[in-house]
């Protein structure tokens, strides 16, 4: 489907202690973890190192490799550029750094921004790679996301593949007629493609919906898994933000 390297779902189907944790439990854990990271003052560097260690341990339990995680950090790139520019555009007292005159506040803020954003993205990657899209819908439903949004979400995840497949077939059709977009005049062709893509996907989507209705779809998908969540699951997942909180309090006590 093209895009900036995040065109495919990050999910990896495995069976690890992290995969079996119900998704809403994981969701609560990852959001709490990110909140702790964001709440940490930007100059407490030991705390950030501690968070990275926690993430490495969790990543190892989920059997993620560095080669899997690092390429997926590309979503961050625009903000890396912003963070690198901050020392030069921010106001305040100027200091010498690597032979350049930069804003002290800007430098500190840039570093803090990079650390926080990177840690949060890694946390999201760990969540996404251990939670299938279907489980995520279920998790959000359990966390009381309004029914209408759960429905839109379910249909969207269902249709992403329909739209993507349609897009691929249309691209192959264009290219087999020797079309490549070379100048701005070709934008019109791509515009028509986008419009045609929408109608085609809609009409396919209509048929998918009718097929679902004829198989007894009533607006919610049937639930196969057990409703009760064992306390051990909550403990397992919440150990992650709890560890982060311990690191935060620890570095506060030392500073």
């Amino acid at each position: 489907m093209g895009g900036a390297g995040h065109g495919h779902a990050v999910y990896r189907e495995r069976l690890t202690p992290l995969h079996v944790v119900p998704s809403h439990v994981k969701l609560v854990a990852v959001v709490s973890f990110v909140f702790v990271v964001v709440a940490t003052p930007g100059t407490w560097y030991p705390a950030f190192a501690g968070y990275l260690v926690i993430l490495c341990v969790v990543g190892a339990i989920a059997r993620l490799t560095i080669g899997f995680v690092v390429p997926r950090l590309v979503v961050e790139i625009p903000f890396v550029i912003f963070a690198l520019l901050l020392p030069f555009v921010a106001k305040g007292s100027q200091i010498e750094f690597l032979g350049m005159s930069v804003s002290e506040a800007g430098l500190l803020a840039g570093v803090a921004l990079l650390m926080k954003a990177t840690l949060s993205v890694i946390a999201s990657i760990v969540f996404a790679s251990t939670t299938s899209p279907r489980e995520m819908c279920r998790g959000l439903e359990r966390l009381r996301l309004p029914q209408i949004m759960v429905q839109i979400l379910t249909f969207m995840l269902r249709y992403v593949d329909v739209v993507g497949g349609e897009l691929r077939r249309m691209r192959i059709a264009r290219e087999s007629r020797a079309f490549t977009a070379r100048h701005l005049g070709h934008l019109k062709v791509l515009g028509h493609s986008a419009g045609a893509l929408f109608i085609r996907s809609y009409e396919r989507g209509e048929r998918v919906h009718l097929a679902m209705l004829s198989r007894g779809y009533t607006g919610t998908l049937p639930v196969m898994e057990q409703e009760r969540v064992a306390t051990s699951m909550w403990l397992r997942a919440l150990a992650v933000p709890a560890a982060a909180l311990a690191v935060l309090l620890g570095s506060w006590a030392f500073s």
Partner: peptide, 10 residues
């Protein structure tokens, strides 16, 4: 409702 899902996917 499926239309909304499709718009979201698009």
């Amino acid at each position: 409702a499926p239309m909304a899902g499709l718009v979201a996917a698009f």
